[in-house]
């Protein structure tokens, strides 16, 4: 009984390792997004369809901001004067608006997924 469990555990661990290796190994494209004066630069991000993208968000304001998108299902706080990483995708073609939850009237942008 324990031998079977041990076998399965080893199998699960191996699968997890492969999965993790796959996800971090692939040459994920990096896209930069800057926050300044509670605005996103660039306002529109273009990314290819069905590709995972690493979003490098740099907050140049002294105040924290929260990157939020209902369409992308993403939510992350970026402390003032810091940078962070958000993985998005792979996504089908379309427009995915995002905003800064702390300053939503000014911090607005969208991801445009092109074929």
């Amino acid at each position: 009984m324990t031998r079977i469990i041990r076998y399965y555990l080893r199998f699960a661990l191996a699968t997890l390792c492969i999965l993790l290796a796959q996800t971090s190994m692939a040459g994920t494209p990096v896209i930069e997004l800057r926050i300044k004066d509670h605005l996103f630069f660039p306002e529109t991000l273009e990314i290819p369809a069905d590709t995972k993208v690493k979003l490098l968000v740099i907050n140049e304001d002294p105040t924290p901001e929260e990157f939020e998108s209902y369409e992308l299902n993403r939510e992350k706080v970026i402390p003032g004067n810091r940078k962070t990483v958000i993985f998005i995708g792979p996504l089908p073609q379309g427009e995915y608006p995002f905003f800064g939850e702390f300053y939503p009237k000014t911090a607005q942008g969208k991801v445009v997924v092109t074929p």
Binding site: K36, D37, L39, F40, F41, E43, K105, T106, Q108
Partner: peptide, 9 residues
């Protein structure tokens, strides 16, 4: 529409 310039929206 909306546009960003001069550091404002």
């Amino acid at each position: 529409d909306h546009a960003n310039f001069n550091g404002y929206r």
